[in-house]
């Protein structure tokens, strides 16, 4: 076994841009390669939106913060938002026409989608990723794996009995070990989404155990904790948390409709927090979801 020379590694590990400058600045360039990043959020916060955007941004050339590669999107939450991906890819194509000009293809051609029904199915798929990466085309080698979401797989299948929980946590380490191995071997970025559960104040539980920079996670006015517990938290390298709060963002008064007080638009405010990460200090960034994708709001 030979040690790695750290000087030969680029001083900053390669990052995958989120497609938004402000968000990138908050994450020091985006999602790191050779690392596993988890996005935790309740439903409707934009996990999937962010993942879709990442899988398109991976195709950007390295000079623009992309990985010059394709992406594999494993989804366990049905249905897969094909329509939305298509919509995003059109605007992506429009803003980056030069990438596809000579090859007569479009961004959707380089996002591989695979459904995952169960944990067993996932273990069935993972060994095949290896050969998939090897055989992937020269033009866009696989550079990003998205698993959306891990919680959907594990929350349904296991009982709340000691033996099941024990089995479950050893499976977490297996999934994570395998994905990290792939990430290391092919310098991939791995992004995994996770759901939340409500924080229940109990006298004997450890749900209140603090993990990371935030004292507690709050979304839609409720206290939440990431699903799958402490064992899973040990499996990821970085954890980001997206929260949402319904706030009146702007009062749009259209000129032709002066009388309507109902023109107050309520827009969900979304916020990304860094819960823990080996290279990032605690920070946060607000963003919104537009037709073109995710874009941060300057504070």
């Amino acid at each position: 076994m030979k040690p790695e020379n750290l000087l030969l590694r680029s001083p900053t590990s390669r990052k995958l841009t989120t497609g938004c400058e402000i968000l990138d600045e908050c994450l020091r360039g985006g999602f790191p390669c050779n690392s596993m990043t988890e996005i935790v959020a309740e439903s409707g916060c934009g996990k999937t939106q962010l993942c879709l955007q990442l899988s398109l941004c991976a195709q950007l050339p390295i000079s623009l913060g992309g990985l010059d590669g394709s992406s594999l999107y494993l989804h366990s939450e049905f249905p897969f938002p094909f329509r939305r991906l298509h919509q995003l890819s059109r605007s992506f194509h429009q803003s980056n026409p030069s990438i596809y000009a000579n090859h007569n293809d479009n961004p959707c051609d380089h996002v591989f989608v695979q459904n995952v029904h169960s944990v067993d199915h996932l273990f069935d798929i993972m060994p095949r990723i290896d050969s998939f990466v090897r055989n992937s085309k020269k033009r866009f080698p696989l550079k990003l794996i998205v698993l959306d979401s891990i919680a959907a797989l594990f929350r349904s299948e296991f009982d709340n009995t000691p033996s099941d929980l024990k089995k479950r946590s050893s499976l977490f380490f297996k999934v994570s070990g395998k994905l990290k191995q792939l990430a290391n071997k092919f310098d991939l970025a791995v992004v995994i989404t996770n759901q939340v559960t409500d924080f229940v104040e109990s006298s004997d539980g450890l749900s209140g155990l603090r993990i990371g920079n935030l004292r507690y996670l709050c979304s839609s006015g409720r206290r939440v904790v990431p699903a799958l517990g402490l064992a899973w938290a040990n499996c990821v390298n970085s954890r980001f948390f997206i929260s949402r709060s319904d706030k009146i963002v702007c009062k749009e008064k259209t000129e032709n409709d002066e009388s309507g007080p109902s023109s107050v638009s309520r827009r969900a405010q979304r916020r990304l927090d860094i819960v823990f990460s080996p290279y990032l200090p605690g920070a946060s960034c607000e963003f919104m979801i537009t037709r073109e994708g995710i874009c941060a709001v300057q504070a």
Binding site: R9, P11, S13, P278, Y279
Partner: peptide, 16 residues
């Protein structure tokens, strides 16, 4: 120093 990383959390930029 010998650093054995099993989790992949070692980041060169942070070490730098």
């Amino acid at each position: 120093a010998i650093y054995i990383d099993t989790e992949g959390s070692f980041m060169v930029e942070r070490a730098l």
